[in-house]
Simulated assay, not measured.
Amino acid sequence: MVQRDITGIDLESRLADYAATIDRYDLLLGLIPAGFAVAVLVGRLLDLPVETTLLWGVAIAAIALLDGLFVRPPTKPRNV
Rank of each mutant, 00 (worst) to 15 (best):
L48I: 08
R14F: 08
T7I: 01
L45S: 07
G43N: 02
N79R: 09
P77V: 08
P73H: 10
A20E: 14
Y18L: 12
G30A: 14
T7S: 12
T21Q: 12
L65Y: 05
F36H: 08
A37L: 15
F70M: 15
P33K: 01
V80T: 13
F36T: 03
T7Q: 05
A16G: 08
A39R: 06
V38E: 06
A59L: 12
Y25F: 13
F70D: 06
K76V: 11
L11V: 08
T75E: 14
F70K: 14
D17F: 07
Y18W: 12
P74W: 02
E51N: 14
M1L: 04
A34R: 06
L29V: 02
A62M: 11
G8F: 02
I63P: 00
G8C: 03
A39T: 06
A61W: 00
P49Y: 10
L27W: 09
D23S: 03
L55D: 07
L48H: 09
G30K: 15
P49F: 07
R14L: 15
L55E: 12
P77C: 14
V2Q: 00
A62E: 03
V50T: 06
L55G: 11
V40G: 02
L27K: 13
V2P: 02
V40Y: 13
G57A: 03
G68D: 06
T53M: 05
